[in-house]
Computed example of a mutant assay.
Amino acid sequence: MTYANALRCLADPTRRRVFERLREGPRAVGELAAGLPVSRPAVSQHLKALKDAGLVLDRAEGARRVYFIDPDGLGELRRWLDRFWDQALDAFKHEAETHPPRRRPAHPTPPKRGKP
């Protein structure tokens, strides 16, 4: 899986909703489809796309398949996103170290008021 595949896969709003429902734990297709405006076969197709992108895994439980988030696939996407956070923090640190803020007086003198 690459982060590009994961982002492309999650660009679909229905697929994203299916993926977000898996946050709560492993679910079968019927459970995931409940309350969604798409059919169970459509949810199955979305799960296949999520699986192909490396974001979910499945396992057999009796006669049904249960899907869950693949921590390895999610980890790769997170590592890619974390690079942006790391770069932003490094840039902030550099800016703070090279341009320290000006010091203000501890107790500023209030402005003088003229006579009314």
Rank of each mutant, 00 (worst) to 15 (best):
E24Y: 13
F84V: 08
L7Y: 01
R65N: 09
E61A: 13
A60C: 04
R27D: 03
H94P: 06
D58K: 10
R65F: 07
L36N: 11
T98F: 03
G35D: 11
F84Y: 13
R23N: 12
V43W: 00
D12V: 05
G35R: 09
R40W: 08
V56D: 02
A6P: 00
G62Y: 07
H99L: 10
I69K: 01
L36I: 09
R64M: 09
W85Y: 13
L89Q: 14
D90S: 14
R27H: 14
P26R: 06
E20L: 15
R104C: 09
R40T: 15
G75H: 05
P71D: 04
L50R: 04
T109Q: 10
P100H: 00
M1P: 09
S39C: 07
G25H: 05
L55Y: 01
V29M: 10
P111E: 07
P26A: 14
T2S: 15
A6I: 08
E95A: 15
A42E: 03
R15S: 10
A88L: 15
E24V: 11
Y67L: 06
G30M: 04
P26G: 08
K93D: 14
A91R: 12
A6F: 04
A33E: 01
R21G: 04
D82K: 12
V18I: 15
R113D: 02
L50T: 05
L32F: 02
L22W: 04
S44L: 11
A11Y: 01
K51W: 09
T2K: 03
P41T: 04
L22N: 10
P110H: 04
R23F: 12
R40G: 11
A11F: 05
R16D: 10
E61H: 08
R113H: 02
L81M: 12
K112I: 10
Y3G: 09
